[in-house]
Amino acid sequence: MNLTLRVWRQAGPTAPGRFETYEAKGVSEDSSFLEMLDTVNEGLIGAGHEPIEFMHDCREGICGTCALMINGQAHGPAERTTTCQLHMRTFSDGDEIIVEPWRAAGFPIVKDLVVDRSAFDRIIESGGYVSVATGSAQDANLIPIAKDSADIAMDAAACIGCGACVAACPNGAGQLFTAAKLMHLNSLPQGQPERYERTVAMVEVMEEHFGSCTNYGECEAACPKGISVDFIAAMNRDYRKALSRNRRSA
C-alpha cells in the first residue's frame, strides 16, 4: 500500500517544530508501524536527509519505550496495542497518517518524536518500592498470598511505563501510571508497612510533574496494558486514608 505521512520534526528541545510530509510507498501490510518508519528513514538517508528520530527498543510491547501519537491517538488506533505492535494491516492504501510525539507538559520533547519521561522515574524513586535489604528475606512460601490478591497486584504491575495515559489525557495527568504502581505494592502483604507513606510521597511527586485528574477516562482507553481506572479510585482512597492518619498522629 502507499501512504502519506505527516511527521513532527523538531531539531531540539527549544527549537521550533513543524510537520513534514513523506510518502511511504509499497508498504507491506505484514510489516509493523516501526518497520514502515525504518523504511522511510532508509529512504531519507539515501536522499541525504537526516532520519526521523523515534523511540523504540524491544518491539514486542513490553519495554514501554515506543511512544507515538498516531492520528491523534496514543499508540494509534488498535486497542491495547503498543506502537511497536501496531501492524500496517490496520491501515488502508492511500491513508494519510499524522505522527507526533507524546504531548504533555510532564514529557518535554528531546528531538523529533523523542520525549523525556524521567518524571516517571522521580515518582518511583519517591516511594515505589518495598524496603528490603538484599539477603534479609525469609522463605518465600512463608508469605502465602491469596490468588485473587496476587492477580490484582499482577494486573496493576503489568504497566510498562510508556506514558500513553499521560499523552491521552487532556490534562496531561499521571494518575493511571502512579495508581498502577501504588496498587501493585499496596495490594500485597509485603507492601503494607510502607503503604500510606508511599502513597503520600508518590502522589505528591506526581502532582509536581503532571496535571490534575478530572476523570476523563481517556487514560484507560489508551493504555496498551488495559490498566483499569479503578486503580485510580483505590489510590485516592489510600491517599485520603493516609492524610487522615497523618492528621491523627500529628
Binding site: Y129, V130, V132, T134, G135, S136, A137, Q138, D139, A140, N141, I143, P144, I145, A146, K147, A150, A153, M154, A157, H184, L185, L188, Q190, G191
Partner: peptide, 22 residues
C-alpha cells in the same frame, strides 16, 4: 533459592496456586 525469597519480599507478583503458595 535466595533469589526467589528476595524477589517475593520486594513484591514481585509471582504466579500462585489457589492455596496462596507459589
Amino acid at each position: 533459592n535466595n533469589i526467589i525469597d528476595q524477589c517475593v519480599a520486594q513484591g514481585v507478583p509471582f504466579a500462585r496456586e489457589y492455596g496462596g503458595l507459589l
